[in-house]
Design a protein around this nucleic acid. Sequence first.
RNA 1: GCGAAAGUGGCGGAAUUGGCAGACGCGCAGGAUUCAGGAUCCUGUGGGCUAAUCACCCGUGGGGGUUCAAGUCCCCCCUUUCGCACCA
Length: 823
Amino acid sequence: MAEEAAVRRYDPRAVEAKWQERWEATDAFAARAAAGTPAYYVLEMFPYPSGRIHMGHVRNYTIGDVIARQHRMRGERVLHPIGWDAFGLPAENAAIQHGAHPARWTRDNIAYMRRQLRRLGFSYDWQREIATCDPTYYRWEQVFFLRMLERGLAYRRRSLVNWCPRCGTVLANEQVVDGRCWRCDGVVEERDLEQWFLRITAYAEELLRDLDRLTGWPERVVMMQRNWIGRSEGAEIRFPLEGGDGAVTVFTTRPDTLFGVTFMSLAVEHPLVERLAAGRSSEAAVRAFVARTRKTPRAERALGKEGVFTGAYCTHPFTGARVPIWVANFVLMEYGTGAVMAVPAHDQRDFDFARTYGLPATVVVQPEGEALDPATMPGAWEGPGRLVGSGEFTGLSSEEAKRRITAALAARGRGGACVSYRLRDWGISRQRYWGAPIPVVYCDRDGVVPVPERELPVVLPEDVAFTGTGGSPLAAHTAFVHVRCPRCGGAARRETDTMDTFVESSWYFARYCSPRSEATPFEPAEAAYWLHGGVDRYIGGIEHAVLHLLYARFFTKVLRDLGYLPLDEPFRNLLTQGMVIKDGAKMSKSKGNVVDPDYLIERYGADTARLFCLFAAPPEKDLEWSDQGVEGMSRFLGRVWRLVHLLAPRLAPAGVPLADGAADRDLHRLVHGTIARVTDDVVERLHFNTAIAAIMELVGGLAAAAEAASGAALREAVDTLLRLLAPFVPHVASELWEVTGHTEAIEAAGWPAADAGALARETIELPVQVNGRVRGRIVVATDADEAAVLAAALADAHVRSHLGGRPLRRQLVVPGRLVSLVV
RNA sequence: GCGAAAGUGGCGGAAUUGGCAGACGCGCAGGAUUCAGGAUCCUGUGGGCUAAUCACCCGUGGGGGUUCAAGUCCCCCCUUUCGCACCA
């Protein structure tokens, strides 16, 4: 085409730089509250400043940006902030290995990544940027900690932690993968340390109950949290020790099997073990077993059930029978009471253990239509049935027996109903430098003393030495460690552990409402406006399904109870985006299959990168990387660029009426059909791939109709096309908006509304089925009645030949859909 | 083992409430333009049968069922991915 030579070439670099500068200069995406105007808060999980962004970030933030931009165009006030989850171990490792101070390393990384995010054109309110390593941020975290300490929600206790000898540090549970360190792959050991805990278990019931309210969350995530909290209803039962001194208390979900108990199993860490074995012939064997088991990593313990008899007995609460007490490697001290009543006939673990050690089994639950025999059973019967050999409870169903036995235990003072959770309190102490200091000191006289609030923040000192050996550098910083006791003024020692970085990410979403506020963490008016019932849309990876998303829910409830936030749940709607896959595996440095976003922006531009991430798959599914797919998106934008330039001189001014005639009417209909589809896809379904497909069809239709359509119809079509494109590819849409004569920013143009009238058609084509197969198509008036449609169907020659003159057994007209004939 | 999600052309994917399977893109093929390549534009593209882009048959992991009509609903099975994993 001769005209094409005149069209300016599409140069993404120049276009994108131009608009990014303009957005920055005008602070275009500042979130400003406006009473009476709807607020919309869209948030993507903030990044760890690792050095460079990866394609997963690009995908995550592009999804959020489309939503933010679309809501802005709908006239809502949008809060779309960004920040940095800036504390963490990699910064400290960089210091040890390369000598760069964690603060410096982190700041440099943030600077580089911030530039990358700007180059992608994300519409953040940069005035609200936060970094969690900033004392003005973690200061509030220290305040929260003190408040939790006052309420007993933070407490100190000795416990077993994961220790990686090769890294010389404690690891969080989530950093232990199959018993090995996630970074060096070394075998993780257990260590007994004093640790700070947050009492998340106090909120177990509410955290579980409120899952039902999270209707905007993926069912999968709700399920994972439900399993993680792991609520079990059952009974606590006390078995008095023989000799009259105390009892073994167990938790069981199967009180109905109580009469089938043939022994007890205690965890090796159980406090009774030592006392029970003391002075007996079994003492040496028990000690050896306990010592050996405690040295064995959890993962290896699971390989076989082992145990040893303590020599001691307890007494059955109903029968008075002697029950031997064993120590077993598979019993967990952290769950229930650390002691299990063993019922080999009705629990597979007990069955296996009993087989190994020749212990007896007693059947007390008989399944319908079967007679179990302990001698011949291939395994335990764990299902329901009717009770046998269970005294006064014999004959009851297992469900009924659970209730009655629990009640009888309570009446005798031998136990009662009990609820147990799998959820454990959250250990937040980290023997690491690069984290928020825990604001307490230890005084020989006064014990644990909180740092007075007026002295906060306890600032993390920067003048420390990184040797990589001998524990946290903080412990060697004498000015930091040696302090006066705030209570007695005597010599005291400061806590040198820092907080788990998951603490910072548990409340950052709320800080964005008033990130510079110094008087209070959350200004009530701002929080009320933006957080009306939670973040409207939260977007991030499924890997946080339990940890971060559970901690943030917990923190929100605590902050509510402390009077800081009027909020029960942090995230109203959650979108978990899939991974970015290449050559069949998740993109990762170790697999060598990463695509560098910088390269992509350099070669194709940010708009192409964004468009590809959105088009290749719906957001919740994994995205398969395709170099050719990227080319395709680049081609599409080039086509739009040329088409709009070509049509620009022909566009009528706004307000000129459409011409009569099919050309304008058809284009008008296509335009409004596209608006309806794209709006539904973006707002309701969040399926950007089909939204983009619809826009592509509009581009195709527009190109085909261009010659016959009037300047007015072209104006409507081109303006609409650009507005629909704006959230996805904001730079090129902005540029073309200018090219087509607009002086106002495209963001101000608003989101187009579909005109239902434009979609109306005079005629409609319907398929006609004969015996369930399509045998013809008829064109009828849209408002034709059933008889007219049927007559048209029966008049179709091809349909008639398939009917073969046979009488109709059934005829069906589904209005607007099809005609179905049966012979 | 328990729990969940998924399985559709050569590939990514679409089909929103049971109503024309394969939208859109990639790839491929043919053509136009071009010295050539690239770029761009046009046409075709599930399989079979066929001279045919007529018609007909088959087709959404496999097998059965419900229905005028099933990718979609029901039952059984297979495969893959993810999560939890001795939780008493």
